[in-house]
Amino acid sequence: MKPMITSILFATDLSHNSTLALRHAASLAHATGAEIHVLHVNEPISEDARITFEMFVLNEETRKSAARRRHEMVKQILAERQARFWASFEGDEAKIRDQVTSVEVTDGHPAEVILRRSVELGCDLIVLGAHDHGFSHTFLGTVAKRVLRRSQIPTLVVPYQNGEDED
C-alpha cells in the first residue's frame, strides 16, 4: 500500500504557535518518510499603509528597496527560527531535517498562496498553527478557516497552546 502522506506543506506565520505546528509536521514526516515544504507568506500591506508610505517616502526606488528589505528580513527570521528548531533534535531525530526539501518566503494572500502551493508541490497534507483569541485571531484565524474550507487535502490545524517554550 502506498503511504498516504508523502509530502507535507508546513505553513508558518512565524508566530509562537507555529513552532508547535512544525513539531507535529516533523513528527508526521518522521513516521511516514514524507518530505516537508516550509512556506511563509508575507501579507500585502493595506491600502492605507501603502498610501501613508508613499506620502512619507517620495522616492519610488526607496519604496521598492524597503519592500525588498522587508522580504529579506522575513527570510532571515525564518532561517534563524528553523536553525534553532532543528538544533533541538538529536540522534535519529536530527535526520528529519533532511526531509525538508524547500523553504519558501513569498508575498500574497496567505490562504490563497497556501492552497495554490499545496497543489503545485503535490502535497498530501497541510499543517499550520492556530492562534490565541484576540486581535490576531480575527485576521489570522481567518487564514486557517479559509484553508480548511477550501482545501482538497487533509489539513491539520494545531491548536494554540499557551505557555509553550517560544522558538
Rank of each mutant, 00 (worst) to 15 (best):
G108C: 10
R68N: 12
S18G: 13
G108M: 06
L28N: 03
M73Q: 14
V41I: 11
L28P: 00
A25K: 03
H16G: 07
R117N: 07
V103S: 04
I96C: 04
P110C: 07
K75L: 05
P44I: 05
L28D: 02
V41T: 07
R50Q: 13
D48S: 13
P110F: 03
S46P: 08
R23K: 15
D13Q: 10
A66N: 10
F53S: 13
S27E: 13
L128E: 01
L125R: 00
L14P: 08
R63S: 07
A21H: 07
V113F: 01
I126M: 06
I45L: 13
E61L: 08
S65R: 13
A79D: 10
D98A: 08
S102D: 07
P110Q: 07
E60V: 13
H131S: 11
V127C: 06
E120G: 05
K75W: 02
I51M: 12
G91S: 10
A25V: 06
N59L: 10
N42R: 11
I77D: 12
A21N: 11
G122Q: 09
A83G: 02
V57D: 11
R81N: 11
H40I: 05
H24V: 09
E80W: 04
V113G: 02
T106M: 09
I36M: 02
L20P: 01
C123S: 12
L14Y: 09
S88Q: 14
V105W: 00
E93Y: 08
W86D: 01
A87V: 03
G129H: 06
A31Q: 15
K64L: 11
A25S: 09
I36A: 01
R68A: 12
S65Y: 08
H16R: 15
